[in-house]
């Protein structure tokens, strides 16, 4: 048994050096050289300022922007750090709601949100992704149904024709990978940046 103590100690040291230091640092070095944009978090810069990441959703509340999905992320309460308060799209504290399907809190929330959405667009049924929180709380995407549902509100707020806004949604709808993998989705931040660019240009 004593004979195994030396390898036990030195093997953990050896593997820490190989897999815990050399490997991640080498990957970091190569990644920053070959894929600098992705390695840094796929950040979007507008007018010299970082406005977000292509991959991370952000909170939109104004009528002139498309809104992402509800988010269940939280932040420490500034008044009492032991408690948390609900703040959507906190990108250094990813989380889902973890509400089960028979939770009254879930069904009440959905009822509330669905009511508000129906007031914006009474003609269409409410797409389920617009009233459910994502797993990460940072979902950058909505479904094409979820984007088209919001077209009347956004068009009205911006004084644009609905057709123009609908075309923009269609241009920003990304299909499945090779037509098979994943689901069609619309990146909310990119769509809203395109809307702003449209207003400027």
């Amino acid at each position: 048994m004593l004979k195994q103590i030396r390898p036990a100690l030195l093997m953990i040291v050896g593997f820490t050096v190989i897999t815990g230091i050399a490997y991640p640092l080498a990957i970091t070095g190569i990644a920053e050289l070959v894929f600098p944009h992705q390695a840094a978090g796929s950040l979007i810069v507008r007018d010299g300022k970082v406005v977000g990441s292509e991959l991370i959703g952000q909170s939109f509340a104004e009528d002139k922007y498309f809104h992402g999905r509800p988010s269940a992320t939280t932040e420490p309460d500034p008044k009492d750090p032991a408690k948390t308060i609900a703040v959507p799209y906190v990108a250094d504290n990813s989380a889902g709601s973890n509400l089960g399907p028979t939770a009254k809190a879930l069904v009440d929330r959905v009822k509330d949100d669905a009511g508000k959405l129906k007031a914006q667009n009474p003609t269409a049924p409410v797409p389920v992704d617009l009233v459910t929180t994502s797993a990460s709380g940072l979902d950058p995407d909505i479904t094409p149904a979820g984007a088209l549902f919001q077209v009347p509100r956004v068009a009205k707020a911006r004084g644009l024709a609905e057709d123009r806004v609908r075309r923009l949604v269609e241009d920003h709808t990304e299909g499945r990978f090779l037509g098979i993998l994943g689901e069609p989705h619309v990146n909310v931040l990119k769509l809203n940046l395109a809307l702003d660019a449209l207003a400027k240009g």
Binding site: K111, P127, D139, P184
Partner: peptide, 21 residues
């Protein structure tokens, strides 16, 4: 609640609570 959970060409539908689009 008037929520549409049916799959279609425009959405996956189903139980989307806690899932990513």
């Amino acid at each position: 609640q008037g929520v549409d959970s049916a799959p279609s060409a425009l959405q996956a539908g189903g139980n989307m609570e806690g899932k990513e689009v």
